[in-house]
Structures are given as structure tokens and as C-alpha cells.
Design a protein around this nucleic acid. Structure first.
Lengths: 339, 339
DNA sequence: ACCCTTAATGCAAACGTTTGAGCCTATATA
DNA sequence: TATATAGGCTCAAACGTTTGCATTAAGGGT
């Protein structure tokens, strides 16, 4: 039997309300009483029951974090812990706890969000998604539940935080163009996913701006895992003429691509330059070190949480966006003059 | 104003108890009433309030997962998402939700655990730790809160699930010995962390069993990040005679080590064989592909959750252990006859 | 016509808090 | 002396459920 506020009240010969106000440090309680009650609380090792408190306060100080792709191998990516660390770090600071819901399918996601929103456990939701159309997002918008998206969707009525993926694609392409490359491939386009599409569009725009032809053959689709990078790079190597540079939508893809290139007896970056995105810790220690783009997943997380807080604390409806700056990190894998 | 059980009751002209029993699908309610109430519930889009339910049931169906090292770079490791996926997957199945608490320091960990245990939000805790001595574990044991450790500690009064790290170390060493190596280094020993110590002891035992000398110079300490693998490998290369094989306590360390070896103008595996542990997705696509040990983080997670469930559902106190089998995956980085 | 059983439902307390309103008591003001 | 004014506290309702017990009605056996 756990010790409750009434036990304390009885022992201290005051009412439960008084104890409650002592906990809340209300000025309406005399110093003497406060001291007495606090002492007894300590003695009896009392800790308030959060559930009961939440019930009356209608506030749990818990937010839900919904991550998709639980089952896919792409979930095994350093991006996720970094993001979670970011969210958790700022959540801790503000005394919020996070309820992690990693879901497998879109149906599961919807079901989970339904539980989180209607169940009253979570006050808000951070949703990681980059699908064009997300029924989950529609649902959240419809019922007016506070949430923030990490990534981007078509729906304009959402708060989101993201990198400028168009710019990332543009900069990477421009980087290669400046190195004299004319035939640049784009690896890892995944239709239906805004991230990859935005990056691809940025890449395309850079080509246009520099009067380079866009060749559909130079764009290959895939998911974010190194195995595919390897296989798809083989395809690209078979194209005639083959590319002299490859932008991979993720470092893991890039690692796979490099392996395929090296196995074909070619050199990176001398024969083919390679760049990835995400700047995973290993990029620096790969052979050759991989040019990549630091997307600051940690900041994405902290910013998303802060934004959610803003939403929670303001009753006026408004749609905020935040762009987390990304940073091109040039390493040997894309340097022509040998790094 | 959210719709409550009373709203439903009123509309259906029954009592709240009846509605409650309909929700619970109690046999004491007639089919006709059930149907009527269910229909109204749907019409009014009613969803039971979990907080209120938890209060009376004394059961939240939420478990806490406490992960350390939030701030450290080593948290950016595929191990964590995989583990979380495992926990989440089996938690989902049993209708549990997980509260993720990633903490920075030992103090923070203790504080967090205190909140989780006393607050009444979580019914049990999964704690990731491999410290010899964990004040958090002592605390949990003392107050008798249901928890499971992933990893291992000195305290015998805990339920834990882990790999057989001694065996892992032993097998890796033996693998190299069978390849004819006589001077094998161990990279990544971290005193105070059971994982690395167990692995190191396994390695040591294998040397003994094959009448090979154990040389303290061949053991270097570090954390699990590739940067250190690189730096420490350089140290090892300076030793005379230098090792002909290196066991790294983690794949990321191994990757760093390989880079250092290659930069020194040496070949892997011809001059120096290398093996890691954890079998990260990239191991297969590294150059050369990295010999590693699959530790099945996903299974660690599922098993830990199942064990916690057992603890929660049985009132007799008993201490369970589970060993998740690990699997040596031999790749080119450790094959002498060129893979 | 009576009692007993069974099925279906309602009543009210309980879970552990918070909080607005009200009630004392003592002191200051008229 | 009566009256306002705080200060310090208590009362009781409320938050939204669940659940043991009571109640009602109907049917079956004598």
C-alpha cells in the first residue's frame, strides 16, 4: 500500500488540501506548517501520484514521439538515436517525458496515434514523417490535436521542422559541378518521400542553373540502406557513359556505392566522386573519408520539441516552420585534386 | 470538452457502470444493450480516458526504458534503435507503451528512475547498463520495483538479459588463433564496464587455453567510437612487435582501426586481421567486409520485455537470466587466405 | 399465489489528487 | 464594542473511470 497524501495529512494533523498546497509551495500556507509537513513527507517517503494529479490537472507532461519503419533495416541508423537524444534533452529540461511509439505500418501508425490522442496520456505528438500524404497527419489536423512534424508533408496546416532538402541537393550538385563534373548521378530517390524528392529537385535545379542536361538514367531509386547502394551503383556503372560523380541520399548508400566502385577497379574520388548525406560518425573514418552533409538531427529534435511546447502553451492556432541549417562537409571522397 | 463515459450513459439512457461493462465486454450485459451502447460510442466518437482508468486500476500499461549516454557520441549507434525496436515490437503486441528516458549522467539516471518508480506512471523498468556498480540498480532492488537489466551488474538480485560476452571474446580470439595468429590485440577495453571486461576475459582465457602469452601491452582502453579506434590503433602499430590481429570491442572501433592500418601502408587482413563486435549493417559493405559478431540487439529487447512481463505478472520473487545467443560472422577482414 | 433463481442493470464508493469557496481566529480599525 | 481584514486552514466537489453490492423484473417450480 503506497503512502498517499491523506496519510501525510493524518500524520501531520492537517487536511489533505494543506498538504497539497505545501507540495505546490502555495503562499497561503504558513512557514511552520510547511516545514512540519515537508518533514513528514520525507520521513514517510511520500511521492505524489502522477496519475491522480494528471487526472485533475488534465496534464500529464508526457508527449508522444512516433517513429515509422520499426521493422525496416533503415531504422538501424544513427539518425534516430541522435534525433531522440535531441528531443529527450529538451524534454528533460522542461520536465516532460516522452512516450516512444515506433510503428511498423501506416495502419499501425494511425492506430497508435488514435490511442495517443484520445487516451489522454499524451499532450502532444512529434511525428517523424516525410511522406507526401500522411493519413495520420490528416487525422491529427482534423481533431486539432497539438503536434509537430519532423519532415514535411503536403498539408499546409501543420507545424514542422526540417532541413532545407532542396538546398542540400542543390549544394551537393553544385559542389561537384565546381569540381568540373558534368555527369552526376543521384542515388536513392524514393518517390513518395519528400526528403528524397526535395533533394533530387535541388540537384536538378543546380544542373539547370549550370546548363547541364538532366538525364533520367542518372537517377536511381532506393531505400536508405547500404546494400542497395552497392547494388544500384553497379547499375549506374553499367550506364554509358557512366557518371563521374554520385550524390547518394544517405551516407549508408554512399558507403555501398563506394564499395561497388572500388570492386569495379575504379578509384574514389579520382574516377568517380561520391558524396552522401547525414554525416554519420563513420563518414570521417571511411576509406576514403566521405563528403557529406551534416543535418544536425539533434537540433531537429530539440527544435521540434520547443515548437511543440509553443503549440501547447498558446491557444491561438498558427502554423510554424523551422529550417535547421545543414552544413556541407567536404572530405576526400569528392575532392578531385586528391585529398 | 471531451466526451466521457457519462455522456454516453446519458445518451444511451443507461448508467455509467453499464457503459463501462460494455467496454469491458462483460457477459453481464445483454446483447441488445451492448449493441446500442457501442453504436452511441461510435457516433459520439468516445474513447475511454486512460488516466482515469489507470487511477482506479492501478495499472498504466506503460513501462519505462532507461538508456544512458544520451550526450555521448556512442549513443549514435545502430545498436540503440535496434534494441528499441525489439522492446517496442513486443510491447506493442502486449498492449504496452514505452516511456523512453535517455539520461546523461548517473545522477540524472537516479533522478529519472525515482520519478518513474514513485510517480506511478510506469509499472516496470528496463534499464540498459553494464556498469559493475549501479546505484540505480541498488535503488530499484531496495524498493522492490519490477525491473529488468539489459547488460549485467554485480548485484545478484536482478533479472537480466545479456549476451555471453565472455564467450564472444573467447570465440573471436580462438578464431584468430586458428588462423595462425599468435599476437592478438584487444581494443576497447573499458574498465568499469562489464561488457568489455567480460569480452576481454574471454579473449584472455582463449590465449591461455592455447598456451599463448597474455601481454598487457596488447590491450588498449577506449570508448565505442570510431575516432578512438583510429587513434588507438596507431598506438598499437607502434608496439614492437606489433600485433597481427586486432579484436575490437565494437565495429565502429574496428572501422577506425582499419583506417589506421591502411594509412600505415599495411593490408587488412594480410598484414593485420581485424574483427569487430555488433555486426552493424555496414560491416558487410566495408572495405574489406568486417568480421563481426551478431549480438541480436532486437532479441535482447524482446527478451527483456518478456522477462519484465513475467516479473509483473508473478508475485513470487525470483531472479531470471537470459542469454541471447551471439553469432560469429566471418568476413574478409579476418581471413588470411584472402577472401 | 408463493418463493427462488437468474439475468440485467443501477448505485455509490473508491482511486489520489487539486482547488474554489467557506470558515474560523486574531488583530487592526472605526 | 462592533466590524472589517487578513491569514491559515478545512470542506467538499471534481477529474473519469471501475466494481462490489443492491435492486428490479421476469420466469420457473411447487
Amino acid at each position: 500500500m503506497r503512502v498517499t497524501i491523506n496519510d501525510i495529512a493524518k500524520k501531520a494533523k492537517v487536511s489533505a488540501s494543506t498538504v497539497s498546497r505545501v507540495i505546490a509551495d502555495s503562499p497561503r500556507i504558513s512557514a511552520a506548517t510547511k516545514e512540519k509537513v515537508l518533514k513528514i513527507m520525507k520521513e514517510m517517503n511520500y511521492h505524489p501520484n502522477m496519475i491522480a494529479r494528471s487526472l485533475v490537472n488534465r496534464s500529464t507532461r508526457i508527449i508522444g514521439v512516433v517513429l515509422p519503419g520499426l521493422a525496416e533495416q533503415s531504422f538501424q541508423h544513427p539518425f534516430f538515436p541522435e534525433l531522440l537524444a535531441g528531443i529527450g534533452s529538451s524534454a528533460n529540461q522542461k520536465g516532460y517525458k516522452i512516450l516512444l511509439a515506433n510503428v511498423d505500418t501506416v495502419d499501425e501508425e494511425q492506430q497508435m496515434v488514435k490511442e495517443l490522442t484520445y487516451g489522454g496520456i499524451t499532450e502532444g505528438i512529434i511525428l517523424l514523417t516525410s511522406r507526401d500524404q500522411s493519413p495520420t497527419v490528416e487525422q491529427l489536423v482534423k481533431i486539432g490535436f497539438p503536434f509537430v512534424v519532423i519532415g514535411r508533408t503536403d498539408n499546409p496546416c501543420v507545424n514542422w521542422v526540417d532541413n532545407d532538402n532542396f538546398l542540400i541537393g542543390y549544394q551537393l550538385a553544385e559542389h561537384f559541378i565546381q569540381q568540373g563534373h558534368r555527369r552526376i548521378a543521384f542515388l536513392g530517390y524514393s518517390p513518395g518521400y519528400m526528403v528524397t524528392r526535395d533533394r533530387m529537385h535541388g540537384y536538378k535545379k543546380a544542373l539547370e542553373d549550370h546548363q547541364l542536361p538532366f538525364d533520367q538514367e542518372m537517377v536511381v531509386e532506393s531505400q536508405f540502406i547500404s546494400g542497395q547502394g552497392y547494388d544500384l551503383m553497379k547499375l549506374l556503372l553499367a550506364r554509358k557513359p557512366r557518371p563521374t560523380a554520385v550524390i547518394a541520399c544517405d551516407d549508408l548508400l554512399a558507403f555501398g556505392a563506394i564499395k561497388a566502385i572500388q570492386e569495379a577497379g575504379l578509384q574514389v574520388p579520382d574516377d568517380i566522386g561520391v558524396a552522401g548525406i547525414n554525416n554519420v560518425p563513420l563518414a570521417d573514418y571511411y576509406n576514403p573519408p566521405l563528403t557529406s552533409v551534416k543535418i544536425n538531427a539533434f537540433s531537429l529534435g530539440t527544435k521540434a520539441f520547443e515548437m511543440l511546447c509553443t503549440v501547447l502553451n498558446s491557444n491561438v492556432q498558427s502554423y510554424n516552420r523551422a529550417i535547421i541549417p545543414a552544413e556541407l562537409v567536404v572530405r576526400s571522397s569528392s575532392r578531385r585534386e586528391k585529398g
